[in-house]
């Protein structure tokens, strides 16, 4: 019975986190874009516009969810839930603070990369079932995109796995107690980090790799026909996905909830320890999220063939060589 209660509490917390993260991230995106575009952004609803996304959610809730004629009704309605469930499953192994992890699975990062491949299914489903040519083209694009970028994302994760010698997320974090991998690992880890950021930006369909929805080409791509709450679910899943991949980035390269320590500066290190571990975790994650948003509001979009060229001609060969380098570093113990 206690186990059951635990399940219920964990589930409720997850859903709550989901909703809050969605609201916060959408607001953050709008504010970041506004300041980069010399605008003010939302500033009417609530203090400094803080309740704007809540108002938008209420609007989306009250809107009619249309299903276009000729659509495969069952699959059309299923797609947003697949997107949502896939994302929700990803929350399980993420440690939000020291010892605050829902499920310390021994194959943590492998689990993440496995379950995140569900996202592509939801996009393919949505694109196909909408009976819309834009959606179909968007789905085709994102299929090709996600399947290829999973490779280099996986390889850059493997780089850290090689250094740590474990797939478990808690082990990976524990291995960074004396310094984050981004500082300990020299150039190869930096290369892995850059590849990782590029690959996950592509995997989450964010600009400059937002070809699946490319608004100037395909109006809205795979979710052209979605409206109301069904659209909101896609939207939410996209933002939570960003949070999750950034959390993984923070765990792999920035030590998750590990505070920042410098060698033997005992005083400094102690001060750093006073900052709660959850602050460290969310700080790092949100920094990475900001970087990804920064990309979006700076760069033009790539074309589909350039996108695949980038992966197959640049990222994949580089990260393959990089894995070899990392192995060398790990075997010879060159890292600190």
């Amino acid at each position: 019975m206690a186990l059951f209660l635990e399940f219920v509490i964990a589930g409720l917390l997850c859903i709550g986190l989901f909703a809050i993260l969605g609201l916060v991230l959408v607001l953050m995106e709008r504010k970041v874009s506004a300041y980069m575009q010399i605008r003010l952004g939302p500033n009417r609803v609530g203090p400094k516009g803080a309740l704007q996304t809540l108002a938008d959610t209420l609007k989306l809730l009250s809107k009619e969810g249309l299903t276009p004629r000729g659509a495969d009704r069952f699959l059309f309605n299923l797609a947003p839930f697949v997107a949502m469930i896939g994302t929700m499953l990803l929350l399980a192994p993420i440690p939000f603070a020291k010892g605050f992890q829902l499920w310390d699975i021994n194959i943590g990062v492998l689990y993440i990369s496995a379950v995140s491949s569900l996202a592509v299914i939801s996009i393919l489903l949505a694109g196909w079932a909408s009976n819309n040519k834009y959606s179909l083209l968007g789905a085709m694009r994102s299929g090709a995109q996600i399947v290829s970028y999973e490779l280099s994302a996986g390889l850059s994760i493997i780089a850290i796995v090689v250094l740590t010698g474990s797939l478990s997320i808690s082990d990976i974090i524990a291995s960074q107690a004396d310094g984050w991998w981004i500082f300990k690992g020299h150039l190869p880890v930096w290369i892995a980090f850059v590849t990782f950021i590029i690959a996950v930006t592509a995997e989450t369909n964010r600009a400059p790799f937002d070809l699946a929805e490319a608004e100037s080409e395909l109006t809205a791509g795979f979710h052209t026909e979605y409206s109301g709450m069904k659209f909101a679910l896609f939207f939410l899943a996209e933002y939570i996905n960003i949070f999750i991949v950034c959390a993984i980035g923070a765990i792999l390269f920035f030590g998750g909830w590990m505070p920042f320590h410098i060698g033997n500066w005992e005083g400094f290190n102690r001060i750093m320890d006073y900052i709660p571990s959850s602050v460290w975790f969310f700080g790092k994650t949100f920094f990475l999220i900001f970087v990804i948003m920064w990309f979006r509001w700076t760069f033009p979009r790539l074309r589909i063939d350039q996108l695949l060229n980038l992966e197959w001609k640049y990222l994949l060969p580089i990260s393959m060589v990089n894995v070899l380098l990392i192995t060398l570093v790990a075997i010879l113990g060159w890292h600190f």
Binding site: Y35, M36, I38, W294, F295, T298, F299
Partner: peptide, 10 residues
């Protein structure tokens, strides 16, 4: 360079 520009405005 582009990111520096948008970062400046941010």
């Amino acid at each position: 360079k582009g990111m520096r520009r948008t970062g400046y405005y941010f």
